[in-house]
Amino acid sequence: MGEEETKYSSFEVLEGIKNHDRIILQYVYDIYFPQVCKFIENRKGCESDAWDVFQDVMGVIYDYSQKPDFVLWIPFPKFFFILTRNVWFGLLRKWKVGVDLISDELQDLPDEEAEKLHEMLYNQVISRLVSKHLSQLDARCAQHIKFSTLGIDTASIAKKLNYHSNQAVHNQRRKCIRKLIDRIINDPDYKNLSDYERP
């Protein structure tokens, strides 16, 4: 895994991810997602675990790609699977699930990258959970949160959502945010986050 011939260079793939290039994204999905599935299904996981891991790894790579000083120091396939292994084995350790590890699979990142990666993964998982629970909130609450964070002023929100006062908008927004935060806190993935915390 991670050693195969590639149609695009590592630079092209990273640039494609950075610029949301649909062709590259489709290529990365077609090539890597089945391999992530196979890797995880052979190590006590299922396809839905693989999809979460794939999203988290891609989210972290996207964050890396947006850093102006980031230079990929190894080929993209290797980079992708180092991240995948780190994410998956991190979860297995947390779940205290034993797996027979081949020493080759325990490739680690350089020390200076490991700390950064843990932080980025932590943020990525939080971001995935916010997004997931935001989409599951009732439409009015989700709209409320979105309007507020988009910087639309309170008076306009009151008018649009038929509130009698600005204070009512503030109260409702806080209720919606509280509802969202409570849902995230009760998500099992949030409880698993300790392995992504900074070492």
């Binding site: 991810i17 949301h20 649909r22 994204l25 489709q26 999905y29 997602f33 999809w51 794939f54 999203q55 891609m58 989210g59 996207y62 964050d63 943020n123 939080i126 971001s127 995935r128 916010v130 997004s131 935001l134 949160i145 979105k146 507020s148 964070t149 988009l150 945010i177 969202l180 935060i181 995230i184 806190i185």
Partner: peptide
């Protein structure tokens, strides 16, 4: 931290868009 993340996710629409594109492909 979660409160900040909610604000960030709702406003960082470029990354959200990227994640949505992945979901579409999936």
């Amino acid at each position: 931290e979660l409160y900040q993340a909610v604000r960030q996710v709702s406003t960082n629409s470029k990354k959200q868009l990227f994640m949505e594109e992945l979901k579409d492909i999936h």
